[in-house]
């Protein structure tokens, strides 16, 4: 299945976000091998050059590492993966709080809503 991409933002950025998500969520394990640029590009139905650009970006952040003989792997630096996951979680939390503020809820009230849902799920 081709990946769903927004039409108004650079494609490579969206690929970076998608692959980051796959790594922090554990779909690709620390130290695990990643598909090749071509395989990934075919899966996403995007240009291989754009996928290459996304990979370069992820290499710069240290999340993926190119090994001369073994292709590309996810970093085995679990700390780094956790740090990036926390950053992404924080971004999402900010988005949530901003939307709640638009609805007129204070931060406390918004957190209350979260607790309520979280509590209901645990029952």
């Amino acid at each position: 299945m081709a990946w769903d991409l927004d039409s108004d933002r650079p494609i490579y950025l969206q690929l970076v976000e998608r692959i980051q998500m796959q790594i922090v969520s554990g779909a690709y394990e620390p130290g695990g091998k990643l598909p090749s640029v071509r395989e990934y590009a075919a899966e996403a139905a995007v240009n291989p050059n754009t996928m290459q650009k996304a990979f370069s970006e992820l290499e710069r952040s240290g999340l993926i590492i190119t090994q001369r003989t073994n292709g590309r792997v996810v970093t085995d630096d679990v700390e780094l993966i956790r740090k990036i996951r926390d950053e992404l979680a924080q971004e999402q939390a900010e988005v949530f709080l901003r939307k709640m503020a638009e609805l007129g809820l204070s931060r406390e009230e918004a957190i209350g809503v979260l607790r309520q849902i979280g509590g209901a799920d645990n029952e």
Binding site: S7, D8, P10, K53
Partner: peptide, 11 residues
Amino acid sequence: VDNIREQHGKS
């Protein structure tokens, strides 16, 4: 393509 998206914020 990415230049257009970056500079103009549209497809």
